[in-house]
Each structure stands twice: as C-alpha cells, then as structure tokens.
Simulated scan of single mutants.
Amino acid sequence: MLTFEEKVAVIEEFTELDRKDISLGRVNFHYEDSLYDKKIVVYRLHPNGNGFVYAGEMEEADTDERGMINIKDYSADALRDLIREAINSLSLSPAEKDPVMEEWLNDRDQALILLREEDGYNVYADDTLEGAFNSYQEAASFLEQEGFSRL
C-alpha cells in the first residue's frame, strides 16, 4: 500500500488537477474543466492512505452508491490508470463516450436519422429536427410508432 505522500506525488503528476486541502489533514483534487457538475476527482485522501476516486461517469466501474472507488490498497500504476480514466470520463460528453448515429427507414423508403447529441437523442429528416428525446428508448419508440425500423 502506498503512503499518503506517495499517493499525493502520483496524483500531483496530473497537472490538470488542483489540490484543495480540507479538514483533518485530508486532501481533495479537483478537475475544474469537468463537463459535469462533479469536479472532485480525488476525494478525502486521508493521511492514513485511505481515499476515493470519483468514477461515476466511467463505463462499468465498480463504484459505491456515490460513484466512488476506494483507493486505499492501490499501487502507483493502478492509481495513475484510475485517475487518468476518471479525468477522461469527465472530459467527454455522453455523446462522445457512447455515440449513436442510426438510419431508420419506413416501407416507403423514407429515412430518418437518430443521433445522440449533447442533451439527448434527436431524430432528423435531412437537416430538419423531427423530435428530441431524453433517452434512446423514447426515440426508438417514437420511430417505431411512426412506422420506421432500424437498418
């Protein structure tokens, strides 16, 4: 297990993170360029070596209910990898992480395009917005109800 000082040294390699000293000798590291409301990447790193990394925006990360991963027993390389992934996950929009661009056709060979964009899923006929939806399921349901099927 790395000491507090060793963990701080690894974390400080990431120049995009800002150190914020908090109570009881603990330290947070913030990523101010986050595209999300969440800006704390390293949370409550304690002098005993315990602490957390926010991974709530990472695909398939094994997190607690707050989106955190405990880093108490992490090696230097594992900690570097986790922090790099955490920063990357906060640097990409949902559309960049999981892009969707699908063509849907009806029985008259009319085509609509379903795109994942910053604020949800949009359906276009050429350049004209036909519908905006909060989820893929809502958009797909709309398209199916209108007689379209995915290619």
Rank of each mutant, 00 (worst) to 15 (best):
I22E: 03
G51I: 08
A132E: 15
K20C: 03
T63L: 07
K38E: 15
A61S: 14
E60R: 09
A55K: 00
E103W: 12
K39D: 12
R66K: 12
Y74W: 08
E32D: 10
L79P: 03
E57I: 01
M101W: 01
N70I: 11
A125G: 13
E138D: 15
P47M: 04
I40T: 15
V42I: 14
I71A: 01
L129E: 13
G131Y: 05
Y54S: 11
D98E: 12
E138C: 04
S141V: 02
V8E: 11
R26G: 01
Y54I: 09
D127L: 08
M1V: 05
L129C: 12
N48W: 03
R108M: 08
A139M: 05
I69L: 04
D127S: 14
G67C: 05
Y43D: 09
E57R: 15
E130M: 10
E85P: 05
R116H: 15
E60Q: 14
E96N: 06
D109G: 04
D33L: 04
E6G: 11
R44L: 09
K72W: 01
E57D: 10
E130P: 01
D107Y: 08
A139H: 01
F148A: 07
L79G: 00
R19L: 03
S93N: 06
D62M: 06
N88P: 01
L92P: 03
L35F: 00
D126P: 08
D21W: 01
F142E: 06
S91D: 06
F29T: 03
L17G: 05
L45T: 13
S89G: 10
M101Y: 05
L17I: 00
R66C: 09
L2H: 02
L105I: 13
G147E: 07
H30N: 11
E118L: 10
D73L: 02
Y136E: 08
E146M: 12
I83R: 00
L45P: 15
A140T: 15
E13W: 01
N48V: 10
